[in-house]
Design a protein around this nucleic acid. Structure first.
Lengths: 207, 207
DNA sequence: GTCTATAATCAGATAGAC
DNA sequence: GTCTATCTGATTATAGAC
């Protein structure tokens, strides 16, 4: 019996894992740069430095590639959320979470998926890894939202689900790209601007 | 000499215009439903009820079809803006403009373009009709934004351009679709929710 | 698992008759 | 201008040798 085989992955398996990580990172970058439709599998293979047929030994379809990239981002988000100081007030946790998304976008690391691609949406919905992550994330954020509403820090008249969606939508907010393209503001300024308009809106505070 | 030909379009020209209007309306609907990439020219031809080759007699490319649809929406927006009571305060004008976009989206009439399609962006940028409309619209809204900031109705600390982009971004705000898919809220409620989070944000008013 | 080479398909665009 | 039929290129996916 291979006594160690069960305990830790073999060298070969580690190599495999590393290669797949490389692939998913490449896909993630290309998705962030060009989006799902514009990204071609040829391109992914070329940038990873392997043949396209080899890519298909690791992932069964282009959709699966994108799903893997989304699962990766989802895990990163969960890790960040889990590492937040639990004693901080809910509103602060939420601001930190939205800030994390904005920083990921500004760093060019947020995959941009078409909002209405049926084949990809189906693949995402079929992925347990993705859906479980999405649900856990929604629960976490949802809990903070309700707590912040109960403390009258977030507007209690808004449905919690609407606030949750508003936060999720920052992941594909074109305002970030617009401001970045303009070149007038630093990444930190853009982050502050979008965070501010998301939470405080655009009206004057004392009206 | 054809004395009437110069004064008003001939019957044939009117027919042509009507047909092209039909095409653009169909394209607009398909763009709103499925987006630019998922919409096929075959589909457009089938829904209009003409052969694909005939379509290409009217528009030189798929991009041109999308541009025509965007120009149409732009003109509608300009017409709406122009019809607003000029004596109303700037903030009210802006709310009306954003509300108009949300209603168009909720009615399924807002084309959804990929934020990062180079060929389409190039075509849009090359269209004088589109760019002129965009600039005029930006000037109008920009003027109101600065006036509202001067009156301390909009936050004067935010760059006017950031506020402008925030309004433009409502045209592709996924929160509208999310809430609509959920089925919990009427179109009017969704309109009010998104309008509120856009202007007033999500934090409590009296903090 | 990796490769080269190739299939299979789909979609944008065009030819040419009427 | 409209049609049928076709071309062309791009892209996803696979066969089969090593």
């Amino acid at each position: 019996m291979k006594s160690e085989a069960a305990a830790k992955p073999s060298f070969k398996q580690q190599m495999l894992q590393v290669r797949e990580d490389t692939i998913v990172q490449t896909v993630n970058r290309l998705l962030a740069e060009k989006g799902f439709e514009a990204m071609t599998v040829d391109e992914v293979a070329a940038q990873v430095g392997i043949a396209k047929a080899s890519l298909y030994k690791h992932f069964a379809s282009k959709e699966d590639l994108a799903v893997a990239a989304m699962v990766r981002v989802m895990r990163q988000a969960q890790a960040f959320i889990a590492a937040l100081p639990p004693q901080d007030p809910p509103l602060q946790q939420l601001r930190a979470a939205v800030r994390w998304v904005l920083q990921l976008k500004l760093a060019g690391g947020m995959p941009s998926l078409p909002s209405q691609n049926s084949s990809l949406r189906a693949s995402l919905a079929a992925s347990h890894d993705y859906m479980d992550g999405l649900i856990e994330l929604s629960d976490r954020l949802g809990g903070w939202i309700e707590a912040a509403q109960a403390a009258n820090e977030l507007n209690p008249q808004l449905p919690a689900i609407a606030i949750l969606y508003t936060f999720f939508a920052r992941a594909c907010d074109p305002v970030v790209e617009f401001l970045k393209m303009g070149g007038l503001y630093t990444d930190a300024q853009i982050e502050a601007l979008v965070l501010s308009t998301c939470f405080e809106g655009v009206v004057s505070r004392q009206g």
